[in-house]
């Protein structure tokens, strides 16, 4: 009998019996809950494709053991907003037509959510600093920066 954990994911509560307590959070979200995001990009905490907010902080779910997130509030991309009530960050990225394939999106969007919350007037250097380390293979960087500046320069 493994460890029992509870996660709040995008507003609903889920219980898990952890047969393997080392299972990363990513696999509970994708495999057990059937969520379509976050994505697997590296499994090494090097890219950001798997990013979710854990109690408001962007975390790499590919390396975070699910047991370490017990009782946490987890927000995925799909939990930020809806087409009817988009999160301002979602709206800014749509308006900017950011991203190509979009596979990297979770890292950039979740980091942007935390950034504009914590630093609503972030400068160009602060934006680049906050995003540093995230990968986008398609080269969406210009539109990503512009999308965030739609919020930081309007705030």
């Amino acid at each position: 009998m493994g460890k029992h954990i509870t996660l709040q994911v995008d507003g609903s509560s889920h219980d898990f019996d952890m047969a393997d307590p080392t299972t990363p959070l990513l696999y509970l979200l994708r495999d057990d809950l059937g969520l379509n995001n976050p994505h697997f990009g590296c499994g090494l905490s090097q890219c950001g494709a798997c990013t979710v907010l854990v109690n408001g902080t962007p975390m790499r779910s590919c390396v975070l053991p699910a047991t370490a997130a017990n009782d946490a509030n987890i927000t995925t991309l799909a939990g930020l907003g809806t087409p009817e009530h988009p999160h301002p960050v979602q709206q800014a990225f749509i308006d900017e037509q950011a991203f190509f394939c979009g596979y990297c999106m979770n890292g950039w969007v979740m980091t942007a959510v935390a950034l504009v919350r914590d630093k609503p007037h972030a400068t160009d250097a602060e934006i680049r600093h906050a995003f540093s380390g995230l990968k986008c293979r398609c080269g969406s960087h210009m539109s990503i920066i512009r999308a965030v500046k739609r919020l930081t320069e309007a705030a």
Binding site: N36, H39, A78, T82, P86, F93, Q97
Partner: peptide, 21 residues
């Protein structure tokens, strides 16, 4: 004309091939 798939992806509605079950 904007791409519709960008909004789909941003709301987590796009089913990528990695999401097929």
């Amino acid at each position: 004309i904007p791409r519709a798939d960008i909004a789909d992806k941003l709301f987590g509605n796009e089913v990528f091939n990695t999401d097929v079950r």
